[in-house]
Each structure stands twice: as structure tokens, then as C-alpha cells.
Amino acid sequence: MPGIDECLLEAMRLPGARGAALVDWTSGLALGTVGEAPGGDHETTAAEAAELARMAAEHGAFAAQGDGHPPVEDVIVSNRDSYHLLRFVDTSFDSSVFLHLWLGREDGNLALARIRLGEMADRLVLG
């Protein structure tokens, strides 16, 4: 059963992975980080990604129909040279965390990363 660090290291093995973090979107705290962060600062990146994740999680427009948890699965941001993939972690206890994977656009495979990150998020809290 993987812990937080093992989960992040596994995410880093995805092709094109530059950095990964587990972030609490209520506080903006990074509970674990590996690899690089845009601008070299994991703390700032976590706070900014948390703000984006919170908007997606709390605004009804993005929520799935029905009462399922969490309301949103992923947030994907792409730019000229990279992808940012935020995957909400569905815990049985009360929390507000997501996995943040930063992928280089050249080598990254967004579709693959999205599936794998979802599996990692499940394994992290379900074993």
C-alpha cells in the first residue's frame, strides 16, 4: 500500500513528468512534493493550483449530475509547453486534497496521465 511519497514518485515515472504534489485546496498547503515546480517554488505553485481547484470544486456549473463525490474528477490546464493535471482525491474521511502533475508537452501523454493519475489517487487512499 503506497504512502504519499511513493504515490508522487510513481506519478513522476509517467512520460514527460516534471513535478508532482499532493495539495490541500482549502488551505493551499502542499502535503508532499517531488520533482520541479513552475518557477522553482512548490509552495507558490500549490497555493495557486489550490485556488483553481477550489473554483472547480465549489462552483455548481462544473459538478456532475447527482450527489456523487467528489463533484469534479480532474482539472486540466494546457499551455504552449506543458500540461497541468489536477486530480481530486476522494477520501472516506473529510478532506480536500488533489494530486497535481506537471507534464512537459513534448513527452507527456495527457490521456494516459489522466487515467494513471486517477488510479494513483484511488490507490493512495483505498490501498
Partner: peptide, 18 residues
């Protein structure tokens, strides 16, 4: 004892600590 997944326990522990 493996009653809970390591990730869940670590996450909850850090949440409670901060």
C-alpha cells in the same frame, strides 16, 4: 497492522498535525 491504507493514514495524520 494495515487496517488503513498508508496514504490515507499519512494524509489524515498531516491534516491533524497542521
Amino acid at each position: 497492522s494495515g487496517v488503513l491504507p498508508a496514504g490515507a493514514l499519512e494524509l489524515c495524520h498531516l491534516d491533524a498535525l497542521y
